[in-house]
Amino acid sequence: MTRDELQDKIITILTEDFEFEQPGLDDNLRDDHNFDSIDAIELLGKIELILGVSLSREEKEKAMTIRTINDIVDYIETIENSRNK
């Protein structure tokens, strides 16, 4: 999956499942869209489905620094790359 495709997929999830309105790639998820820790855990479940792998505890903890949509896409690419090594 290209970065653009991944980005579109995340935006679709955030719009349809998390009811984001017009999300921007560098919006602050918490301040601009009320995205909280519960949402973060829910999103990780969806990322597992996208990647088709179960995330480790360590990988999930790294997601807690995510602040923007760009961060989410970076995070997924990092996971993919580390798994493909």
């Binding site: 519960i38 855990i41 829910e42 597992e48 792998v53 179960s54």
Partner: peptide, 9 residues
Amino acid sequence: SKFSSIGAV
């Protein structure tokens, strides 16, 4: 079973 089937909430 591979994934987090039980929702966070």
